[in-house]
Design a protein around this nucleic acid. Structure first.
Lengths: 333, 333
DNA sequence: TCTATTGGTTGGAGCGCTCTAATGCTGTAG
DNA sequence: CTACAGCATTAGAGCGCTCCAACCAATAGA
């Protein structure tokens, strides 16, 4: 259980510790003779460099910290893929940590990540207060994904929720719908731009917005539909705040003997893997998740390399994915 | 961007660096007077200890590395929750890393994790060859979750797939089914114990097993059903290798004009959040995921503290969750 | 009064590495 | 034959911390 050190390799190869260090970092100013000798010795001993000692000594880090607010959400997995892709290309490793949606745990996760002194930090939809983020940003570059910030030292990557909602409304309008309700995401992140976009798009088409308060879960979507039915206020189309909510809504509609999309059309938001299931086949709004990750990593690395100091604000365009839950009102002909 | 060190705190508090170190580690042998002075100085400077320097100096680590083979799978998120819970209780932090289901990336992830010299490693359903795991296990304690191993220095935590499959078969048999097919998981992890359990349970009830080759995806589940229908070999009940496969099967059955569960019953495996959606409401086999994580962390920490050297093999019992996709053959009365 | 004992505090070595400056060693020019 | 590059190599300091042994009161026991 005791790992060999650079000293051991140096001794075995008959050179100095400094030379081993040069070889390990791939320096060109080492003779082939010594290089092969060192590599051979390292191989024989099963030596691999000690990342912490290295970063301590060099006062630099090749690690990016990533805090994922909720590991259960596949949304973040794809963002992480994007981050990982760019980081790897540029010789950085990533370490991930999770906050479990609780500010206290998230704070702890942040602390833990910082204790490794990474080169930079990506926070995916964090729920900690802005002050905590600002404090971290004083110590190292920080990029926020799926959360906006006014802190001038922090870069952000978000989707344009207004545009997304507008796309959905326009799709429904073009199918001939006039009564379109929005099941709202309440306090959830990104709920308000989506609501704003919905309202604006409805008014732009001379239609009356109908916002129903709801949440980001399938149970909430079902509840909202039941209350609409009870109030006899069911429209011909529904724009849910996310895919889960939409699936709950569909299920409540079917329970009530209504058919989707013949009687009611439903549009989700996020294009999660759930929406793609043939059994669900939900029309929804897609966000370029991997692109979120790539842009976040790029922005972070620019700051790490001190190529930029002004904050950058990416606002990415979502797109409409039409599947089987939308049709003209009165059913498809 | 330059972070304060212990020296800075010591200077500000008017004490020695060693005393600050004692305070930071919560030593009892520090007077209250000095302790508060040090904590105040640390607070004012925004100081937090440098984990790497600490671990380098102490030659110990309070970090557990977790490698998740696939971040997209919510199964692992709950296991991580369990690990995190136990680790935190015992004063350990975790860092996560992902292998993206590819052996090459996973190898890299492993290397990266090892370079932090964590106290131990939990590998969640890794796909790297056993030799790579064995090599890692020479350097530090390793626990495998959802993958078995014969390496004697490695602990494992698995569910008992045979029992799970048996539970499903017995549920269907008790409903009156005699023709029950299994949509097999092919090469996937845990596919073979599930298949074995299915076959054994069928034979135990004097029934003829019908194994249909399939995969862990919804598209594969749908394909398998279509081929069964084409061969005119559709049974009255289906046991899928996992929930995704089951949802694909249901969708194909409905496309063919058959109703679930009146015409055909379907049972999934894993009890993912998908299964719990009201729109799906799938009867399935639940695995105690958080318990997997807790047991894995416990096992790892026992080894870290050198309380145990013989390997431990946890085999946890799954349980049946009955929802709305199973009923007696010929439909519910 | 003198020696132990105890509890709090500190200097200094050292963890595995990087980095700077210095070293030795050619080879070439003056 | 000296001077000076130019190159490969190395000694040594130091990154931020822990840990050990030493130290220093202050009190207790003889």
């Amino acid at each position: 259980m005791v790992r060999p050190t650079m000293e051991d390799v140096a001794l075995r190869a008959g050179v100095s510790r400094a030379l081993v260090s040069l070889v390990m970092r791939g320096s060109p100013k080492v003779s082939d003779l010594r290089r092969t000798a060192v590599l051979k010795a390292a191989e024989e001993l099963g030596y691999s460099p000690h990342a912490m000692a290295r970063s301590l000594a060099s006062r630099t880090s090749t690690v990016l910290g990533v805090m994922v607010s909720d590991l259960h959400n596949a949304f973040f997995a794809e963002v992480v893929d994007g981050i990982d892709e760019v980081a790897r290309e540029q010789g950085f490793d990533i370490i991930i940590n999770t906050g479990g949606r609780s500010p206290a745990r998230e704070r702890r996760a942040l602390q833990s990540l910082l204790s490794f002194r990474p080169a930079g930090l990506v926070l995916l939809s964090p729920v900690v207060p802005a002050t905590a983020i600002g404090k971290a940003a004083e110590q190292l570059p920080v990029v926020l994904v799926a959360r906006s910030s006014r802190v001038s030292t922090v870069d952000t990557v978000n989707d344009d929720g207004e545009t997304g909602a507008r796309l959905a409304v326009e799709h429904l309008v073009s199918l001939g719908h006039k009564r379109i309700a929005h099941l709202d995401g309440g306090e959830g992140t990104q709920a308000s731009p989506r609501r704003r976009g919905y309202v604006a798009a409805m008014e732009a088409h001379g239609l009356v917005p109908q916002v129903v308060s709801s949440e980001y879960t399938d149970a909430a979507g079902a509840r909202a539909i039941r209350s609409l039915i009870a109030d006899d206020a069911l429209p011909t189309a529904i724009l849910s705040c996310n895919d889960f909510n939409a699936v709950g809504a569909i299920s409540a509609l079917e329970d009530a003997g209504l058919r989707v999309p013949s009687d009611v059309s439903v549009v989700g938001y996020d294009n999660t893997s759930l929406a793609a299931l043939r059994h669900v086949s939900l029309t929804t709004i897609d966000q370029p998740r991997a692109e979120f990750g790539r842009l976040a990593a790029d922005a972070l690395l620019q700051r790490v390399r001190e190529e930029r100091t002004e904050p950058v604000r990416h606002l990415l365009n979502p797109s409409l994915v039409v599947r089987s839950t939308t049709a003209p009102p009165g059913g498809p002909r």
